[in-house]
């Protein structure tokens, strides 16, 4: 069901993240390490408050780890400036959130073109890239609609298109199906899976076991620690192990 992993796109090494300090300190992540390879979809699972979302924001450089290293395509984000990390997000990383993914004032195509335009690409060229990405997710005909005029599923497709536009090879998805009905949710995951099969690395945060079934591997987090990581074990077994 998967293409064999080759080169690491994302590598987290012993990542700690502490919010606040002193007695009020909260350890969101305590020494998390894992790797996502090109062509691989990794599911990150865990109960609420286990640090899943923190993991994702750190992987995309939106947040900085308190210690440890975060490498995206071989570059350690920890050493980078704010602007350089922003550049990494424009060129290497795509995000898909649970909902409210799109800028309401921009059309679908413009939303997809956003990272390209932010990168200084001419708007005509950015639009061509955006249309290509929309084509890939199958809604090129909705390019000039505003988010308010689209269904939730369509909006998530646009979000995925934005996450993959250009040459970006790391897609980070945070409960991308949370606001969708089951059927639409499955479609979104199929799309994500297809993207990874085409060569991207994907990290999918979810708390639903059946979504994790789309993944090549599952990383199970609890209280900021990787409880288990499996490359080959059937997902169901893993889940049981995690709950044991």
């Amino acid at each position: 069901m998967s293409t064999k992993a080759t080169a690491p796109v994302l590598r987290l090494t012993d990542v700690h993240r502490v919010h606040g300090d002193g007695e009020a300190a909260v350890h969101a992540l305590r020494g998390v390490s894992f790797t996502a390879y090109a062509g691989e979809l990794v599911a990150v699972m865990g109960p609420s408050g286990s640090g899943k979302s923190t993991l994702l924001t750190i992987a995309g450089g939106l947040d900085q780890p308190t210690s440890g290293s975060v490498e995206v395509e071989g570059t350690d984000l920890v050493g980078l400036s704010h602007a350089e990390r922003a550049r990494t997000r424009r060129t290497s990383v795509g995000y898909v959130f649970q909902g409210f993914n799109l800028v309401p004032a921009l059309t679908a195509a413009e939303n997809v073109a956003l990272p390209r335009e932010l990168d200084g690409v001419r708007s005509g060229e950015a639009r061509r890239d955006a249309l290509a990405a929309l084509e890939e997710v199958g809604i090129a005909d909705l390019a000039d609609r505003f988010p308010d005029d689209m269904s939730g599923g369509q909006q998530q497709r646009v979000a995925i298109a934005r996450a993959i536009v250009g040459e970006r090879r790391l897609v980070l998805a945070d409960e991308p199906t949370g606001a969708l009905d089951t059927e639409t949710g499955e479609e979104i995951l199929r799309l994500l899976r297809a993207r990874c099969d085409a060569g991207a690395a994907g990290v999918l945060v979810t708390h639903e076991a059946r979504h994790a079934a789309w993944a090549d591997r599952v990383v199970f987090l609890r209280d900021g620690v990787v409880v288990d990581e499996s490359g080959s074990a059937p997902v169901d077994d893993l889940l049981e192990a995690g709950h044991a």
Binding site: E84, R87, R90, A105, L106, L114, L118, D119, G120
Partner: peptide
């Protein structure tokens, strides 16, 4: 494609478009 370019052209035209649409929306 360079980050430096983004400081100029891309930023303003996008920002102005966002501002215009936002003004119309609210």
């Amino acid at each position: 494609m360079s980050g430096r370019l983004s400081g100029r052209r891309g930023g303003w035209s996008l920002a102005l478009r966002l501002a215009r649409r936002d003004a119309m929306r609210s």
